[in-house]
């Protein structure tokens, strides 16, 4: 059902997240789409990127001359670091997270729900990747952003009233960025913060009552309907 929609590209999704980041912020990036963020931060914005395998100050990709097998991110991809970077062990790394010292964490997801719960580590009977650091990350950073495509390959919406897959964390997500727009979990509904140009709320794949439209780009009156 998403075939003909004017969806945001991955780069456009990434740029929406970058726009939410304050100068000087510390930022943890999960595996998948979020790792693209490191390459889209403008030079005049100082962001300290944390990767949970033990580095603060991730920069862009290395060259073939500077690449090092001992310098990787949590996705096991080669990286480089900026001036002022630091390395540390995994306990310290997760202390930064769990202790609330990291401002923003951006993770991928399989499902996210109106209560702010996230599922991203297993599909019973089909696939188990493991939770990695995600269960710790969602309880530590001051702001948790989930990035995911709005629809699965089968056309099912991934933003639900309640997740059906095993949870990574319960009531932990603050913002959801999909290729359709930006949403805030409100408990029984999602508030629409922004829609990709050309997307309308009846294309979002759930009954109208799931959406609390607080921000109309045309400036018309907001409405609310938060019942299930």
């Amino acid at each position: 059902m998403s075939d003909n929609l004017p969806l945001w590209s991955k780069t456009e999704m990434v740029d929406e997240v970058v726009a939410m980041l304050d100068h000087g912020a510390s930022l943890n990036l999960g595996i998948g789409i979020p790792t693209l963020i490191a390459e889209r931060i403008p030079p005049d914005k100082e962001i300290w990127i944390h990767s949970e395998n033990g580095v603060l100050g991730v920069s862009g990709r290395p060259t073939r001359e500077t690449v090092s097998p001992t310098l990787i991110n949590a996705g096991k991809e080669t990286i480089s670091v900026r001036k002022g970077a630091s390395y540390f062990d995994s306990a310290t790394s997760f202390g930064m997270i769990r202790g609330g010292h990291i401002d923003v964490c951006v993770l991928g997801g399989m499902q996210v729900d109106a209560e702010g719960s996230l599922a991203n580590w297993m599909i019973p009977g089909k696939k188990v990747t493991g939770m990695g650091g995600a269960m710790d990350l969602v309880h530590g950073a001051k702001m948790i952003i989930v990035m995911l495509t709005h629809f699965s390959k089968d056309g099912d919406a991934k933003l639900l009233h309640r997740c059906t897959l095993p949870l990574t964390g319960k009531r932990v997500v603050h913002k959801v960025v999909t290729d359709c727009g930006i949403f805030t979990p409100m408990g029984d509904s999602f508030r629409i913060e922004k829609l990709a140009p050309g997307i309308t709320y009846d294309q979002l794949g759930l009954p109208l009552k799931m959406w609390t439209r607080s921000l109309f780009q045309d400036g018309s009156e907001p409405w609310e309907n938060t019942t299930d």
Binding site: V67, T70, G75
Partner: peptide
């Protein structure tokens, strides 16, 4: 061996 699992390079 110090294998690199996922080599990623800057576009040059």
């Amino acid at each position: 061996e110090n294998a690199i699992e996922i080599p990623m390079y800057a576009e040059q």
